[in-house]
Amino acid sequence: MAKVKAVGILSRYAGDEMEVEGGKSVEELLASLGIPSPLVGIVLVNGRQVEKSYVIGEEDEVKLIPLLGGG
């Protein structure tokens, strides 16, 4: 199972931490959780930024970080 952590306002949709099965893209994961994709600023997988087309692996740790402020 992959671990998913949702930070800040995104935890409203996914709780602070949850487990999901691998094989789905980040974009699909967001859709299944009802998280509006544009609100997710940075997706980290195992500490590295990925694009939302990234397919989640079974051992991955996914962190969803909202974009609030910008520069």
Binding site: K5, V7, I42, Q49, K63, I65, L67
Partner: peptide
């Protein structure tokens, strides 16, 4: 929760 990503990328994390 945003600390790790912010420190790794700074403002360049916004580009994607």
């Amino acid at each position: 929760g945003g600390f790790e990503a912010w420190v790794r990328y700074g403002t360049s994390g916004v580009t994607v």
